[in-house]
Design a protein around this nucleic acid. Structure first.
Lengths: 243, 243
DNA sequence: TAGTGGTCTAGACCACCAC
DNA sequence: TGGTGGTCTAGACCACTAC
């Protein structure tokens, strides 16, 4: 104790402990994206390490996308950048080439339930909140989503006022529950539409369906959300980068 | 000139120039994965920079996956790690749970052609070699592939002896043409099988088809391959990581 | 034990940005 | 102009690996 790092593993190198400490502060919302975090020289003094060590810690967080350097201005917390990832699934323009309007979300259900097998396994608990959403582009329904989040991390989610919800959930997870989604794994597969989903998507039963299962993880790599999204296979397209 | 860096932009920082020089040597196959590259201290002497600068250059290449550090042993060129990425598309086990045998490839065509619109646009040229392959698991055909590579990078590919080909193309690209695939973008969509493809895949015409379009890039981020792969949508599953 | 990468320091000067 | 990050140096000591 008394080393300024807080509850980090003393066996770790100084830069790793500082990185974890900074991560915790970012996750707690201690710094906001519009203000620079303390300068490297300041952090070096505060934590009693050299500037080089601060740089190495900050480098790691910049690499993870949590921080952003602006030469001459300072280092800033990056606003969660998951904004554009959900509608990667579908064409961004109409068939006539005109750009689509902004996607919208309609929440159909929020309830505390016992999770089915798949989300329970992914999340490591069956004590969850279930969310059902319809997502639309230009008034046209394109995605039907079932989302499961652990009550342990999202206590009170089901009673949030409707006005708290925008089109995206991840910013809300962060602002209301301090849960920062850092990475996710997607699995794309093929199925045919059930009567219930066909009706929601305004397609025919047994029409071809694209299905995306996603597990999302927080900055500590703990699973915080499992979702399954279905949309018509026609016009569906999923982009991904391989390194 | 005379600074030991070769033809790198003198306006770049020293670590970036060193990184580019090392990249070129790796791409030329000057170092092999079984031998360590020169030590950091040695590189610092050779290029007349400090060890810290060498570390920053090497850090970048380790981050890109081109190099690998082994404490106490040295820093090594990483063997291209695309080996496992191609058959991510399909289940790795039979429906009874038993693991599948090793995937195999059958080359059906190699020819110099004028590229169709899609590959021509992706590659920036219509002067290409076309390859058609069938890929199978346990004697069962699962993927039909059309591949286009620019003749400018793969001169003589169409006349390579059949014995030069293993199940994977990327190692061959590297060994015979010095082309190292570093990243790729995939696009997954769904379609229905044409008569020709249905016959190859032993499914019915108009059966649902999963289609993956891939553009692969080398270490200098130039497109070096475009391919379109089709397989039955049933049992198809595509995994991807989002960061 | 010698050599390697891993960590860390305490400076230096430069380029950029806001005031 | 002052403060920020960007680059770079020349060391130090430690942990690990191979011989």
């Amino acid at each position: 104790m008394g080393d300024g790092f807080g509850a980090t593993d003393v066996r770790l190198p100084a830069y790793a402990r500082l990185r974890d400490t900074l991560t915790a502060r970012i996750a707690q919302g201690q710094w906001t994206p519009d203000q620079p975090i303390p300068s490297e020289a300041r952090l070096a003094r505060d934590f009693d390490v050299s500037v080089g060590t601060v740089r190495k810690a900050v480098d790691g967080l910049v690499g993870e996308g949590l921080l952003e350097r602006r030469q001459g201005s300072g280092t800033f917390v990056r606003a969660p950048s998951f904004n554009a990832t959900l509608f990667r699934f579908f064409p961004m323009r109409e068939s006539d080439g005109s750009p689509l309007s902004i996607p919208s979300s309609q929440m159909l259900l929020r309830a505390v339930v016992t999770a089915p097998a798949e989300p329970a396994e992914a999340l490591g608990t069956d004590d969850v909140i279930k969310i059902i959403r319809m997502r639309s582009l230009s008034e046209h329904p394109v995605l039907f989503e079932e989302i499961y989040i652990p009550t342990s991390r999202f206590s009170g989610f089901e009673t949030l006022p409707d006005t708290a919800f925008g089109p995206l959930l991840y910013p809300l997870y962060f602002e209301h529950f301090g849960v920062l989604v850092k990475r996710a794994t997607d699995e794309v597969s093929f199925a045919t539409a059930s009567d219930r989903i066909a009706e929601r998507l305004r397609i025919q039963p047994n029409d071809p369906l694209a299905v995306i299962r996603r597990t999302a993880f927080d900055i500590e790599d703990k699973p915080v959300e499992w979702r399954i999204a279905s949309g018509s296979a026609h016009g569906f397209r999923y982009r991904s980068e391989i390194h």
